Simulated scan of single mutants.
Amino acid sequence: MQSYTMTATRLDGYGTRMHCKAAELLADTDPAGRADAFNPAELLLASIAACMMKGIERVTPMLGFSLRGVTIHLTGERQDAPPRMTRIDYEILVDTDETDRRLELLHQNVRKYGTISNTIALAVPLNGTLMRLPSPVA
């Protein structure tokens, strides 16, 4: 069983500083919003993206999967009453020459072994695709 800890400290009515290990992050806690920090919904989406990216980094060596890069786009929908996320959609774009079957295998592994994505998927629909990054037009 693993345990994780972090500390959040209110800076003022506009921001909160998050500390974990040697890392630090500014969170948008301004009711009006601010452009220079992630708000709580964006932090949730970022956590899912980081989980998926970490899963890709963990599984590609085991699968012998070759890639040049990965981009993950997430979109979350929020309702006001009661306030909650109602769905989260993602698109994982992989720059690779691997076959479609191997891309499907990578996606299955990302979905199956993601601690954060599996936890969130129990609370809100989490749907998406993993596909090859389109080749640049010459």
Rank of each mutant, 00 (worst) to 15 (best):
T7F: 08
T7H: 07
A8T: 11
R10N: 09
R10Q: 13
R10A: 10
D12L: 00
Y14V: 02
T16C: 12
T16M: 08
R17I: 04
H19F: 10
C20G: 15
C20L: 14
A23L: 14
L25H: 05
D28E: 02
T29Y: 04
G33M: 11
P40Q: 01
A41K: 08
L45H: 01
L45N: 08
A49G: 05
M52I: 00
M53E: 10
G55W: 00
I56Y: 02
I56T: 07
I56M: 07
V59L: 11
L63M: 15
G64H: 04
R68I: 00
G69R: 12
T71Y: 01
T71R: 15
I72T: 09
H73D: 15
L74Y: 00
L74E: 02
T75W: 09
G76T: 01
E77M: 07
R78N: 01
Q79R: 13
D80K: 15
P83H: 08
P83G: 02
R87T: 05
I88T: 14
D89V: 09
L93T: 14
V94P: 01
V94W: 00
D100S: 03
R101M: 09
R102P: 00
L105N: 05
L106S: 00
L106D: 02
L106Y: 09
H107K: 15
G114T: 08
T115P: 01
T115D: 10
T115W: 04
T115R: 02
N118G: 14
T119A: 15
L122F: 00
A123G: 15
P125N: 10
N127F: 03
T129D: 08
R132T: 00
R132D: 11
L133F: 05
P134E: 14
P134H: 11
S135F: 12
P136F: 06
P136L: 13
P136C: 03
A138V: 05
